[in-house]
Design a protein around this nucleic acid. Sequence first.
DNA 1: GAGTGGTCTAGACCACAAT
DNA 2: TTGTGGTCTAGACCACTCC
Lengths: 238, 238
Amino acid sequence: MHPVIEGDERPAFKRIKAHVLSQIQAGVWKEGDAIPSEQALASEFGVARMTANRALRELSDDRILVRVQGSGTFVAQQKFQSTLVEIHSIAEEVQARGHAHRSELQRLERVKASDSLAAEFELGAGKAVFHSLVVHYENELPIQVEDRFVNPALASEYMQLDFSKTTANEYLMRVAPLSGVRYCIEARMPTPEIATMLHIDGGQPCLVLRRKTLSRGQVASVAMLWHPANRYQFTGGF
Amino acid sequence: MHPVIEGDERPAFKRIKAHVLSQIQAGVWKEGDAIPSEQALASEFGVARMTANRALRELSDDRILVRVQGSGTFVAQQKFQSTLVEIHSIAEEVQARGHAHRSELQRLERVKASDSLAAEFELGAGKAVFHSLVVHYENELPIQVEDRFVNPALASEYMQLDFSKTTANEYLMRVAPLSGVRYCIEARMPTPEIATMLHIDGGQPCLVLRRKTLSRGQVASVAMLWHPANRYQFTGGF
DNA sequence: GAGTGGTCTAGACCACAAT
DNA sequence: TTGTGGTCTAGACCACTCC
């Protein structure tokens, strides 16, 4: 039986998780290898099978292990070199950098959805949607143009919003709790209008984030966020 | 007691999870509200407390609920509208789309690191590094230029690598297990050389991923991955 | 048929919070 | 003191895989 280290007061399932991880880390158990069964680990650690089960189940939730009913538990393939970029609200991001955030409403209107927009919203053609165009500034330098269409069914007061006090993002989060997102990062040349608003010349590309948010089974908002390539990038790491 | 829907053969813990989620979705239980205790849910569903426990524990792992020992279980604050982009290896990504991946080695050399490159590698100035330039094709259409510098201390056989059989990525993952990453997504105009390799004209921007990988406390590799904006974007959702 | 994981039970003891 | 979550037990039955 596995010796219990003196003074190790972690719960048993955590000790088992740590043991499995250390065997993998040390290269004793390699990718694709079968590791001991729940039963075996349970006896080894002197615990009930449910306890070993929880340890292995949590590791498999974390993609460290792969479990196959009737067959066994295996070390998962090395995670591919994959990284995650987190995309925040622009106001939060600027403030987190300790800079001043300000936004300027350029346009706020009720428009008939074009065919493609109606399709994106999964609405009937010709239905009205709200449209806003906002420029966000970081220390008085334009950093984002937010070109957004909003579903009136989910955000009826959008036209009355005071964009100097709250962002579209914050409002939508409040009235239409997020249930899903689709997004896409692109490089694009700005339209002349966008270039002017961002104070860049037309030869300079933009980093564009397109984001569609879902709420209560409907499309809540379709946004296109334009950032000047010379002043903006998505970063991250671990 | 909670009625069991006819023919609902999901495990009990999943039924309980679905029930909790639907109450939150419907707005019956709001942010910060306490939800029924494990004991209450167990009786309601006619199951053991351990079963309700598993349902609530998994939801709290998913940040849907917050559990406070001695106090109760509460609906978590709405997640901030933040999204994650996963960045894969290009070969894996193309194959996942069911397309053919092929790569072409343009250059492979040993060069003296410039000052800025030496700084990025945290090496002494003038030390040698390996440099490779590879074009990746998806169905014979160029989709990525991989411009990569590699630390010889961690990948001594890099110059002997057969780039037609394996990618730099795969090799590095094998010999220098990843311990950290820093990356950055940008929009840039291509250099004439990059534009030629990607079969685009110079007026077309590129979506650029710069990635620095760490292994065993050293910088293993610094890569710049150029993608034609008209054929490539990072996407995701949940 | 033997071994594996997937789920579940009906108890138990503990640490902690509210009262 | 009562109720909560955190953990654990020693069984059980099932579906599945492998031989």
